[in-house]
Design a protein around this nucleic acid. Structure first.
Lengths: 230, 230
DNA sequence: GACTAATTAAATTGCGTGTTTAAATTAAAA
DNA sequence: TTTTAATTTAAACACGCAATTTAATTAGTC
């Protein structure tokens, strides 16, 4: 068995890197194989040679960004499994928000464009990767809500926490290298002032806020639960 | 001065209607003038005759969906200006969530796609329309937080409430008439079970939940504020 | 130096898109 | 009814790019 040539591995890697950025910036349809190869300094035929098709490259690129961002920002943010549930939830929230706000992590950019303009090509790979994380989130919320909580309550609370985290997605600065978009009129989505303030606060302060709201909401739920029982 | 012919007004209207749906389903780039005209049962030249260009039609269609959804779901949901702040906030939240969840209102579909894949063509029209609503939201939150609240706190709290409302956007069933998308593998974004549960709950229950979390969070903020002062 | 993985340029194949024009049609005004 | 201009229409225009394949070449590896 002959070893694969090392330059081939390199090119493959550069293609993944470039594809992540191009897909994140333009979405599947507006991204072109030509642009990806150009950015990777590879020949136009490289995508089909290494990945078979643009479609497969898309899925591979997503997986790549997912693994990259999770290596950099572990899902528990280093909080040990023995810590109290509140701290573990804080870790999960901080990890999620870091992954969203890190300008070098293009994973959420791709997800966001895929949600808005679905190709369906990421369904399987996304489900496999994300479901465990969601389950973890839910179990933490469930623990904090206590035994009396119904499944519906858990869903609602988990959803609220999640939504607040995802809200900061709109703080990301848009990038549009080589896109057809009209950069001059480009929307700073939402209120530019809000974005500015949030970014200057730093991740930790945002996490503190989300946790304050989340814990207050969950506590209120517990109170109602206790009232209903007695 | 000669009156405009009524059949012309009708065609224009049908074009707006069709454009709303096509743009909402496919986004600006993937939407074609041909598809819009076909849906409106108008000739291919109709868009340029009535709107000058695809770009202008895009902006007009957005404005159209905005006005339509706001006629159907007024921004205060009928809560009078004399009601206590808590009730007015509830009205604003309910109005927003109705607008998002109403399957006939395509306004948020267009916004969502524009955010994910910006053309910049809606910047002005969106800012003009949305800014007053945001200001209203903020002033309600500010009132509930009380006098001691800093601008940053108001922003954070308003943001949280808003994020939770926007979270239900992912409950919308995707539509993709005639799109290139691969319907079979189409992602039911997020957890399908969650969507199902939420939709079966109805808007009012979801509003109650968002308000429970929001008010609990705001109350907690006030508590900290009081503690800091004393 | 033989083998084959990797690269390359060029060809293949395929499909549209937004917009304009000029002629035909139609509804309303005179 | 005639006039008139708004509307509709079909066809043409003009611009353009996309993903993939092939066959020849280059360059590591054994």
């Amino acid at each position: 068995m002959r070893m694969k040539r090392s330059d081939g591995v390199e090119t493959r890697q550069k293609l993944l890197e470039a594809a992540s950025n191009i897909f994140a910036d333009r979405g599947y349809h507006d991204a072109t194989v030509a642009a990806i190869c150009k950015m990777a300094k590879a020949n136009i035929a490289a995508v089909n040679y290494y990945f078979g098709s643009k479609e497969e490259l898309y899925a591979e690129a997503w997986r790549y960004t997912f693994e990259l961002t999770h290596e950099k920002h572990p899902h528990d943010d280093g909080v040990p499994a023995t810590a109290p549930a509140e701290e573990r939830l804080r870790g999960a929230v901080r990890s999620l928000m870091k992954r969203i706000l890190d300008p070098d992590s293009r994973n959420f950019d791709i997800v966001h464009k895929e949600i808005a303009n679905p190709t369906g090509l990421l369904h399987q790979v996304m489900t496999e990767s994300i479901e465990p994380l969601r389950k973890n989130f839910q179990s933490l919320v469930k623990e904090l809500l206590g035994d009396g909580a119904t499944e519906e309550m858990v869903m609602l609370c988990e959803w609220s926490v999640h939504s607040m985290c995802l809200g900061v997605m709109f703080c990301r600065e848009p990038k549009y290298p080589n896109s057809k978009a009209n950069i001059k009129n480009m929307p700073k989505v939402g209120c530019p002032k809000t974005r500015e303030v949030f970014l200057s606060m730093g991740v930790d302060a945002l996490v503190d806020h989300v946790m304050l709201f989340s814990l207050a909401g969950i506590k209120e739920f517990r109170k109602q639960l206790a009232g209903a029982v007695s």
